[in-house]
Design a protein around this nucleic acid. Sequence first.
DNA 1: ATGTTC
Length: 477
Amino acid sequence: MLAGIERIDEVEWEVPIGYVPGMRVPGRFFLSEDLSETLEVGAVQQLANVAVLPGIVRYSLAMPDIHSGYGFPIGGVAAFEQETGVISPGGVGYDINCGVRLIATPLTPDDIKNPRALIEALFTTVPTGVGAESEMRISPHDLEEIMVEGVNWAVAAGYGTENDAAHCEEGGKMPNANAAPVSKKACQRGMPQAGTLGSGNHFLEIQAVDAVFDNEAAQTFGLSAGQICFMVHCGSRGLGHQICTDHLRTLESATRRYGIEIPDRQLACAPVHSPEGEAYFGAMAAAANYAWVNRQVITHQVRTVLNRMYGIDYEEMPLVYDVAHNVAKMERHNTDKGRQTLCVHRKGATRAFGPGCPEVPQDYRAVGQPVIIPGSMGSASYVLHGTNTAMEKTFGSTCHGAGRVMSRTKAKKATPGSEVRKDLLKQGIIVRATSDASIAEEAPDAYKESYKVVDVVRRAGLSLPVVRLRPIGVIKG
DNA sequence: ATGTTC
């Protein structure tokens, strides 16, 4: 383990006050000794820097998929008081409400006689890649409704089934979303992109449940051994990116104006209830709602293909759940001061609320919130459930995925994409992407192994495994 | 992540 870090428990570590000047609370992160080789000094420094921000509660936290990001580390969780605390775009990331959803089907692997044909049909139907545009015609008025109503817009417009909204975190609609602080430029970028996958680590995957760790929880979530599922990983595309860019600029000047001292310019922030902070929060919530619509429309595209190819009814392909892993939300948590509403930033971290929480859909409440952890390309994904330990230790949060260990540029030089594609095919995994270059960037070697990350949160008790899903086919931008 | 160096 790196110097200056103290061991708290088997997989829990503390970055003490004083690691960087001005820390108000310690840092805490979760990591196994095995994964400690991957820990970057820069990411720990970022974790400590976040502890300098005003109004931070208890700890600056990070999950085992920690790596350096813009200002805040990816894998980071930070909660701020309403009255004294701040909100920061760096704590959310550029891809606002990047998230993952899982769609169940009644199919088994044997039902898919020609996986290549299914993958081609999906690749043709779901627009993918940088700058991909949808065939949907979204008017400026539609976009405004999308940003305010979230997934409810999509369901009302015919892109969903009855239970879809209830199975999204936050009901697929952030309250207090505001289209007013969303720039015209952001709207222009967002309008043609609703229902598109994007690029980078975003994907649409055909998976099969190949291990069940908790029968009862799996049954509650509607999952069983051998079942074919579809996983969608994407976010708010150019809209969220533009909102982040726009508001970083206004918050940089706000940081100075409010006299907030920050150790890194990338931690630009404003008081939660300042005009600038509220403008960012409203616009961020609007982008979050757009991202839920985006994943919902892609879900509809997947269901349409499956209905056409296999004659399955839309109602037989329920949404298991949809999680947001890049977002800031106002949430009630127990603190030293009693029960408080906090502005919880999760950047590359997943909400993992425990059993009994009213925020968990009624049909899942006894088990806890489903947590969806996508694997890197070609590696397994997991469904876990939230716990009371997460509520106590991490403001109800857990990891979000494998986590990079190699930069995009480094990965591109390491192995040609064509070779990665052939290697995966040997393992029985079909990859369909817009280019071999994008496959190289996302090579499995560029990521931590997802099971190691999942095992840390299991050992820490932050969330517990329900099923494992192995990939059969991957569609990438 | 991203009209991938506005």
